[in-house]
């Protein structure tokens, strides 16, 4: 069985700071993986490396049987099939919501405008955003902006969706609407890697939880095991701090 994503010995340093120090990870089709760990443990960098936004120093990343870290790979082609959603939304402020969503399908996949807009409207409707289609992003709430960012990534029909702390920049009352979107995607079978501080959410949605510590996956397993009976003392310490902060 080919896995949706296979990472072997991934290393990444910024100058002398080693952020990823040998990551190995296999992700099956339709699997939802939660990446947890302290800030600076390498969650975001791992996601950015999988999308090749950050060039990889060492190691292999294989997506749907194709090694994307091989020499001569067309990175633009790789990125079409891997969606990423950022903490800070990063919508294009000069474009209306609909244009944000259709830009890549039109310019990258060569879809006709009418076709791309019909597909985008269907997606926006699915997530309750159809009445925002002709607004500019700065007219939207944070939760709406983040949902649009998710729709924008989905419009490219990615095989794999990477979510980088997508609720961390939101007001508390806006978090649920974004998490509900992700729940729906998980129910629909989307393969996802989710870096998150929402432990309750991670426990609910993930098939597997990976605890990152100092650039390595220290421990991974089903949420019940990781959250109830972690094997590593560092995982325990991390979760204790989370509980102490009232976030689990």
């Amino acid at each position: 069985m080919t896995s949706a994503l296979s990472i072997q010995g991934l290393r990444k340093a910024f100058g002398r700071l080693e952020v990823l120090r040998g990551i190995d990870l296999e992700v099956a089709e339709h699997e939802v993986i939660a990446l947890i760990g302290a800030s600076g443990s390498g969650k975001s960098t791992l996601l950015r490396c999988i999308n090749l936004i950050e060039p990889v120093d060492e190691g292999r990343i294989v997506v749907e049987g194709t090694e994307i870290t091989a020499k001569g790979v067309n990175v633009d082609r790789v990125r079409r099939s891997i969606g990423i959603v950022f903490q800070s939304f990063n919508l294009f402020p000069q474009m209306r919501v609909l244009d944000n969503v259709t830009l890549a399908p039109r310019k990258v996949l060569g879809r006709r405008r009418a076709e791309a807009e019909a597909a985008a409207m269907a997606l926006l409707e699915r997530f309750g955003l159809e009445d925002k289609a002709h607004d500019y992003p700065d007219r939207l709430s944070g939760g709406q902006q983040q949902r649009v960012a998710i729709v924008r990534a989905l419009a490219m029909q990615p095989d794999l969706l990477l979510l980088d702390e997508v609720t961390s920049a939101l007001d508390p009352e806006l978090v649920a609407e974004v998490l509900n979107v992700i729940r729906e995607l998980a129910a629909g079978g989307m393969t996802m890697l989710i870096a998150t501080h929402e432990m309750g959410f991670a426990r609910d949605i993930a098939n597997r939880v990976c605890f990152l510590d100092q650039g390595v996956i220290l421990e991974q397993g089903p949420p019940d095991v990781i959250f109830r009976a972690p094997a590593q003392s560092r995982t325990r310490q991390f979760l204790e701090r989370i509980i102490e902060a009232g976030r689990l």
């Binding site: 633009d76 950022f86 919508l91 294009f92």
Partner: peptide, 28 residues
């Protein structure tokens, strides 16, 4: 730079990102 990252992550080429995302904002 996050604007460029967002554009490139959708599969837009460096030139497309410049043309459709960066320059319209920069010129304004």
């Amino acid at each position: 730079p996050s604007q460029d990252a967002a554009a490139r992550s959708l599969g837009l080429s460096r030139f497309q990102s410049l043309r459709y995302v960066i320059l319209p904002q920069a010129v304004r």
